[in-house]
Structures are given as structure tokens and as C-alpha cells.
Amino acid sequence: MTFGAATREATRARWAARASLILKPLQSALDAFPPSRWLMRRLDRRALKGRLLAIAPPYAWLLIFFLAPFAIVLKISFAEPDVAMPPYTEVFALIEDAGSFFLSIKLNFSNYLLLIEDDLYLRAYLNSLKIAAISTALALMVGFPIAYAMARAPRRWRGALVMMMILPFWTSFLIRVYAWIGILKNEGLLNGFLQWLGVIGEPLTILNTDFAVYIGIVYSYLPFMVLPLYAALERMDESLLEAASDLGCRPVKAFWVITVPLAAPGIIAGSFLVFIPVVGEVVIPDLLGGSDTLMIGRLLWAEFFSNHDWPVASAVAMILLLILVIPIVLFQRHQAARQEAAR
């Protein structure tokens, strides 16, 4: 069974690579953060005696908090809605017939068919992807200079800067988004300030628009972009830019040909960390967005709460997962292939 073992080994390597793509930059961001370093040292000393013990927790985590719920949601997506507790039919049933037991599996595909037939879902998926893509680009544009400044700050400040970046997490996410309502509304702080400055005469309508949604998303997800970027940029040797300049390359061009490619792992990790959750974001569009902000998260919410249709909600969630996972897997394949080629 050497073949099986080899495949397993490859799968494991792929998983590890996949995890490290996102985890590594975060890891190094955390490493720069003194309390976490202390914690890691303690963990190192205690736990990492056996290899098994070291790798078991992430796998157990994945199994309990990802695969098991995934299986349940997948099952519900093939059920039918029902007025019952819980409000859907059973997919698997044990049937007794003349003393023999049969496992009956009833799969209902109409939930998925509905998603194809009604273009509402397609448009919601596309719009969510669009909003996520624009938000990710904006977060990158805002986050890059911040991360760059952090990475170039004197070493003794960096821990404090990382800390400040994480600080907002000490307050509830919901409260922070609510605070934006106060800032952005017509009689809010921003309009008041602009009117006081005399820049505008009439208040600008920002709240309840897509623009407000982008502000809220970029604000909320900025740390997820900045930290991996910071980790990547902090590792970068400053003498590389001097070398580029020395070889006749102007600073602006050096930024694009040296800094950006070297920050690529951070850019990719940060973009994934922003893009993926934003696609399914519900709270920010609900609080800051207008009623025409069509997002899949809201639709899913409506299926679950308004329609009480857990099966369709599950199907929507499954498709969302596929939409997110497939590109990541393809990207991983591509990366792995490139690394293979480079070797």
C-alpha cells in the first residue's frame, strides 16, 4: 500500500501548505507580539514532546468545529422543510420491514435546483463577491501603507503598534459598527464636521449606501489585512531597496518590482482573511447598508429566519462554501506547482 501512503503524505503536505499560507503571516505577526511569544514558549516547553500530540489538536479542531458541522449542514441541505422541531425532514431513517432493517436515504435536490432556477441567488452571490472584492482591494490600499509604516518603525515601537492594531478587538464588533451609524448619518459627526468646515452645504447621504458598507467593512477587517502584510514586510530586508536603487531603479518602481512581490504572501493571506468572511457578511450591510445592498449573507438570513427554510439556507451555505473553497484550492495547486517547478 505504498501508493496509499504516498497519497496520504501528499494530502497532508497540501493541507499543511494550505494552512500555512494563512497561518504563517499571522503567526509571525503574533510572534512580534510579546505576550504571545511568552505563551508560545510555555507551550513549546510543555506540549511538543510527541509529534502526535503536536498535530492532533489542529486536526481534532478541524474535525469537531469544521467537518462535523459541515456534514450536518450538508445533510440538512438535502432535507425538506417541515413544520416540526427541528423544522426539516430526516434524510436518513432506519426502516423495519419483515424483521429486516433498511437504511433509507431520502435526498431532496430541489433546494439546489431552486438556487439555479431563481436568478436572485446568482445575483446575490455575484454581488457579494463584488462587494468582497472591492472591500478587499480597498482594505489593501488602506492597509498597505499602515503595515509598511509599522514595519519600518523603530523596532521598540513595533510591539506597541501591533498591539494598537489589535486593540479594537477588545470592544464588541457590533458596538464599533453602531458607532459608525453615529458618524455617517445625515446629522452625524462627519456631516457636522464637513458642514462646519464649509466644505459642503447640505449633508451628504452616506449612511444606508454601499459606500457606508465599504467603510464599515474596511474598518472592521483592516487588522486582518494589516497583520499579515506587516509580518511579510517586517521580514523584508531593507537593503533590498537600497540594492535596487543602487542598480539604477527609482524608488517608485522599486516599490512595485521589489516590495510588492516580496509582500505577496502577506497580500495573499490578508486578502483571503478579508475576502472570505466579507462574502458572507451580514451585520455590516444590515446596519450600514441601504435596502438595495443585496448580499448572500442577508439572503441566507432571510431563508433561515423569514422563510424558516433550513434546507434551502443550508444549500445556500454549501454553495457559498464551494464558491470560496474551490478558488483557494486551485490557487494552492498553482502555488504548489510553481514551487515544484522552482525546485
Partner: peptide
Amino acid sequence: DAKLQRVATRQFSSIRGG
């Protein structure tokens, strides 16, 4: 009922979505 609920929700979502 479930069927009518879906019709209503769908109608309303598309109105809300403008």
C-alpha cells in the same frame, strides 16, 4: 404555508433589492 412563504419572501426581497 412554506410555499406561499417562499413566494412572499422572494417578492419582498426583490422589491427591497430595488
